Simulated assay, not measured.
Amino acid sequence: MAETEGKFDFAIDRGGTFTDVFARLPDGRERVLKLLSRDPQNYKDAPTEGIRRVLEEESGRLFPRDQPVDTALIGWIRMGTTVATNALLEREGERTALLVSASQCYPPLPFPCCWPCNNERISVGLRSHKGRKEYDLQRH
């Protein structure tokens, strides 16, 4: 962690309702914030807003919402999301294909879009059908 010494480190979990922001400050202290994941009247993006707030409050510098954050102050950002996981589990959202090596597909995934590809070359073609985008997968 020596490369991030003296910098702000962030771990962020963006959920469907709330975004949790963990920050390790340059002096070693820690901060935690919880923001609404969607609050368009106040900010465009919750993870960015969480980072902006911590940097502003802890550095004493002004970081306007309409300008990019100064990344020179940041050591690392780790971000996870339950939004995509929930959409996959609930079978909502856009249809998606998952290509995996056969050795990585155990136990078999319970989704019709899981296609073991055995390290073969796969091409993905995009076509439009009645206003919908459809993808064709072909083995070579």
Rank of each mutant, 00 (worst) to 15 (best):
I51N: 07
L55E: 06
E57V: 01
E57T: 06
E58C: 11
S59E: 07
G60T: 04
R61L: 08
F63D: 04
R65H: 09
R65S: 13
D66I: 00
D66N: 15
D66T: 06
D70T: 05
T71K: 14
T71D: 04
A72Y: 00
A72M: 03
L73S: 04
L73E: 02
L73H: 07
I74K: 10
G75R: 10
W76P: 00
R78M: 07
M79Q: 14
G80E: 10
V83S: 03
V83P: 05
V83Q: 11
V83D: 06
A84D: 07
N86T: 15
N86I: 14
A87G: 01
E90H: 09
E92G: 03
G93F: 11
R95F: 09
A97W: 13
A97G: 15
L99A: 04
L99E: 09
L99M: 11
A102M: 04
S103I: 11
S103V: 14
P107C: 05
L109M: 13
L109Y: 07
P110K: 10
P110S: 04
F111Q: 08
F111I: 10
P112H: 10
C113N: 14
C113H: 10
C114Y: 13
W115L: 13
P116D: 06
P116C: 08
C117L: 03
C117Q: 06
N119S: 12
N119M: 08
